[in-house]
Design a protein around this nucleic acid. Structure first.
Lengths: 186, 186
DNA sequence: GGCGAGGTGTGACCTACGTCACAAGTATTG
DNA sequence: CAATACTTGTGACGTAGGTCACACCTCGCC
């Protein structure tokens, strides 16, 4: 597990053993079962999570009880209700296991400490945030400009492995269409 | 103009005069007229822009010539085709003046230099990127969960001043509806 | 091995929104 | 100040996708 985190960090910044030890001192390993919640609506968000194995979904449940999936997080992804995490307010989203999942947990305190102690890590998070925000813009773009068939095709092409691991119901919720409509696509 | 940039930076990180001089050494002041392009599709993106005064729109033009507005940038906002900027590839978006606009230009080289020389600035950009990506997620969220009336109301509430400065056509394009439908809202 | 929960496909029908067309009104520019 | 371009509202009509209802299938579990 540790090796995977290190490899992930080193894709962006090279680390000495000592530096990586500092990182390890700030994260906790945890395992969750399918359907378990890492974050629940209205509760405080203690951590951001790095997914080592498994699959998570980030969900908003609206007033009429409908679930909207904002994103999935699989191996090597960071996920949390980042708004709630950074501002230390109650979560509006929930984060739940689609499969049994192993993660590293990083508290906001540890995040700040790491950024302060290791400028390299700050560079790492800057790059993650930058490309995260670019990816989010691409998704906005795709929601604005494409119909569902195209969106589904794009997803299939970009993340074929992810699509395999999800039910059609969850996919529909992620793409922003009804289950029935997705089921009628070619 | 310089004062405004400094105040903007100091909302997040305190700067000495010397530090701010380093920043100034890395940015260029420029003025553009209404309808002028800062970035044009298919061209290289030399800079990210800090808007001092005026108003910009970030636009994607699809194959059938339809314009989709991804975002607006007004006073104190940073804007660019960030994907193209960070990866130094050709722009897929264009950035155009809605009004006469004054900006500071920051090249990628200068951006990297500033981050390396002034860790504070890296912290500044990290915070901007973090909250930028949170804001993008909120927009995705709103595109997934709300109808047009709600989206329009939300925008009116959050940015009443911005709405005043935009034509209904541009608003519609930003909200992802046809001009006619927007015009029929209460 | 039977039972309940979750997942999937499909028909019938409804509705929010897009498209096209036209008529006015209001800036912008020579 | 006249000409032209941009903006806005509104009617008529088409359609993508939502909703509801039902059938069936698979899989975990007592």
């Amino acid at each position: 597990m540790q090796q995977q985190l290190r490899a992930h960090l080193e894709k962006i910044v090279a680390l000495t053993d000592e530096e990586f030890d500092v990182v390890l001192a700030h994260v906790r390993e945890r395992r969750y079962k399918k359907r378990e919640f890492l974050i629940q609506e209205d509760q405080m968000v203690s951590d951001a999570y790095f997914v080592v194995s498994g699959l998570l979904k980030l969900v908003y449940t609206d007033d009429s009880g409908r679930q909207h999936i904002l994103s999935f997080a699989m191996e090597d992804w960071w996920e949390s209700d980042f708004r709630a995490f950074y501002t230390q307010t109650a979560a509006t989203l929930s984060l739940q296991c689609v499969e049994d999942t192993a993660v590293f947990c990083l508290s906001l305190e540890s995040y700040h400490a790491l950024c302060a102690d290791l400028p390299k890590l700050q560079r790492f998070f800057l790059q993650k945030a930058t490309f995260g925000s670019i990816a989010a813009q691409q998704r906005i773009f795709s929601l604005l400009t494409t119909n569902i068939q195209e969106r589904y095709d794009q997803l299939l092409q970009q993340y074929p492995a992810l699509v395999q691991r999800l039910s059609k119901t969850m996919l529909a919720s992620y793409l922003g269409v009804s289950r029935e409509t997705l089921s009628r696509l070619s």
